[in-house]
């Protein structure tokens, strides 16, 4: 189903999506999208949504199932509290991506903003994954409680930092992989930098190959640069604050 979204209010656009998906439509192409919010929210069916244009904030918020492809940049709040599904962005995306995300995948080709992967969490077999191909702003992986966060820093200019400051601040679960070294002053006090082990190779191999396929990248070339791993020092960073 092809929808021309030019000038269509998000509420009407999303209603069209939900109604058609409920009626059995599986493939959606949305043309001329320009800032419409909440695309994919409330659909809860395994449909494919291709977005031509720049979707608005909270793309795939609370999403449970669909596969969304954005053929441009995305804005803030992508995959907010998302439960299942995939979002692939062929460009950059803004701040607070994957807030409280509990499952599914968010693959971004280029740069991401502040507070990406904040308070991501995993539960049983639901492990959310965010991979960004470029650089990230401050507070990457803040409060992270579970899931996998990968930052590649591909095609960086000379001297351009991979991440901002306060990396993994308040992190108490999950794992962050960075392609390239990290300066200790950028780390939140709740994380430690470690070398990869065999388990990490498996995780990286699984998700990164998929990511590279998505964007036509050469997996081996991406792996040439060594990765480091960030883990929380404690699963109880705030365990000794109170008088009982």
């Amino acid at each position: 189903m092809q929808i021309d979204a030019r000038g269509v209010h998000y509420r009407d656009l999303n209603r069209m999506l939900k109604e058609a998906a409920a009626a059995g439509e599986k493939e959606f192409v949305l043309d001329n999208v320009n800032g419409q919010r909440y695309i994919g929210t409330g659909v809860n069916l395994p449909v494919n949504i291709v977005i031509n244009g720049v979707p608005g904030n909270d793309l795939a918020a609370f999403m449970d199932g669909p596969a969304v492809t954005v053929c441009a940049n995305a804005q803030d709040g992508v995959a907010n509290t998302m439960n299942a599904g995939t979002v692939v962005v062929h460009g950059s995306a803004g701040d607070v991506l994957g807030y409280g995300m509990r499952g599914g995948k968010l693959y971004i080709r280029n740069n991401v903003g502040y507070r990406v992967g904040i308070h991501m969490k995993e539960y049983k077999r639901q492990v959310p994954v965010i991979i960004a191909g470029g650089t990230a702003g401050d507070f990457f992986g803040e409060y992270m409680a579970g899931g996998v966060l990968i930052l590649l820093g591909l095609e960086r200019r000379q001297g351009e930092p991979l991440t901002g400051d306060y990396l993994g601040t308040g992190m108490h679960g999950g794992v962050i992989y960075l392609r390239g070294p990290v300066e200790p002053y950028k780390l939140g006090k709740e994380v430690a930098v470690l070398e990869l082990d065999d388990g990490d190779e498996k995780i990286l191999g699984k998700y990164l190959k998929e990511y590279c396929d998505c964007f036509g990248l050469d997996y081996q070339a991406v792996r040439e640069e060594p990765f480091v791993k960030l883990l929380p020092v404690s699963s109880r960073p705030y365990g000794r604050l109170y008088v009982y």
């Binding site: 909270d58 969490k121 539960y123 409680a145 109880r236």
Partner: peptide, 21 residues
């Protein structure tokens, strides 16, 4: 509690002061 909150058993459940969105 873990099943209801959808977090692993025995982990601290931290609610940040603000909603970060």
């Amino acid at each position: 509690v873990s099943e209801t909150r959808m977090i692993p058993v025995g982990t601290d459940a931290l609610s940040p002061a603000p909603h970060h969105d």
